[in-house]
Design a binder for these strands. Sequence first.
DNA 1: TAACCTACCAAACACTTGTTAGGGAAGGAT
DNA 2: ATCCTTCCCTAACAAGTGTTTGGTAGGTTA
Lengths: 210, 210
Amino acid sequence: MTDNGSVPNSKKTAAERPAPERRGELLATAAEVFAAHGYNATTVRRIADEAGLLAGSLYYHFDSKESMLDEILSAFLDELWDGYDAVLAAGFGPRETLEALVTESFREIDRHRPAVAIYQRESRHLARQPRFAYLADSQRRFERAWLGTLRRGAAAGVFRADLDVRLAYRFVRDTVWVAASWYRPGGAHSPEEIARQYLSMVLEGIAVRE
Amino acid sequence: MTDNGSVPNSKKTAAERPAPERRGELLATAAEVFAAHGYNATTVRRIADEAGLLAGSLYYHFDSKESMLDEILSAFLDELWDGYDAVLAAGFGPRETLEALVTESFREIDRHRPAVAIYQRESRHLARQPRFAYLADSQRRFERAWLGTLRRGAAAGVFRADLDVRLAYRFVRDTVWVAASWYRPGGAHSPEEIARQYLSMVLEGIAVRE
DNA sequence: TAACCTACCAAACACTTGTTAGGGAAGGAT
DNA sequence: ATCCTTCCCTAACAAGTGTTTGGTAGGTTA
């Protein structure tokens, strides 16, 4: 009985926000609908329907449809980078870094599946809008982290050096993140188990060695 | 294979068809815009703009925005299955079949990049509509072809048997098709070259062997 | 000449979209 | 009781949507 205790309304910064608990519920259903049908194809009435209120009422909590999307994506990316930065700061070798990044990614997919699906679908054209410039930033950091790890590994002789590193980067990146399109939490495999098998395929290949 | 004939501009009977050459141009630009911004986010006025005519004029050539999408997707799938069926009928072993399927896929991406991008983005929810039921059919055939090849290979000892075949299937499938999101025809690598490197990664892995 | 066909335009149609304005019920604080 | 805050509803708005209708320039055929 400790979860519904204090009301942190006055503790937040400048922007006065209504009760953050209802907000979270609404954002969760909005994310679910965005992920299922795409941002543009999702009407604000549909979100309201799914959440059990009327379209106009959403504007008590948010000032636009776009800001819902914004909040969903930035919350996801914040958490993602918390995890990634921890991995990158740990001083692992290239192979261990790759393994940790992949595992962390599948954990994020587990926690933020709708947000990841939306990101995959919309980030490319959203990144052009000034409001979503942080998406482009994130993509650059992303590339730096993964490509750097792959290059370090190739130089250290733990990853194959005969591959186009950029192709390998896209290969690993896509391999991991498209999983969000079919992954369902609570399924047969845990995020860690999926990460283990994916890593096994990416690192060792699916062919039998002789 | 999916549908009836190839020119569905039939308000009455398919007695006469307008010049198919202009049709092809319009479909190509429509596919390009759909791929760039998503089907729902694309207005019919935007397509017309890009093609150099007015929105209403598109309805001389097509009877709806949806039928443009239909024609783009089914044309792509028809060609894809021509290639796949040829491979599957060739009587290759599992490994050669996999290699041929991957190579053929990258060739299709090269030829139908916009259609592939649209397919990736929209097929999931389109498949629920009766009109696009052939998308679901195609996906089932797709799964049978790839999964069957992987199973045959695991049984024959050329693919690893310790992997979840379903995971491996999704791994290979996604790995190949997401390439459409970044591939640009006329780039540094030919489809065959990309296929070669992807196959090398999928089959042998990116780690150095000892 | 006239009739005809192709490929388009101009203007509107009905409908959906995101968003806003004003109001009101519930409940706690004073 | 009075006030205030929270959360939602009703009802509308203007802009944008896919689509239809009727017309027409220009070429081809009779």
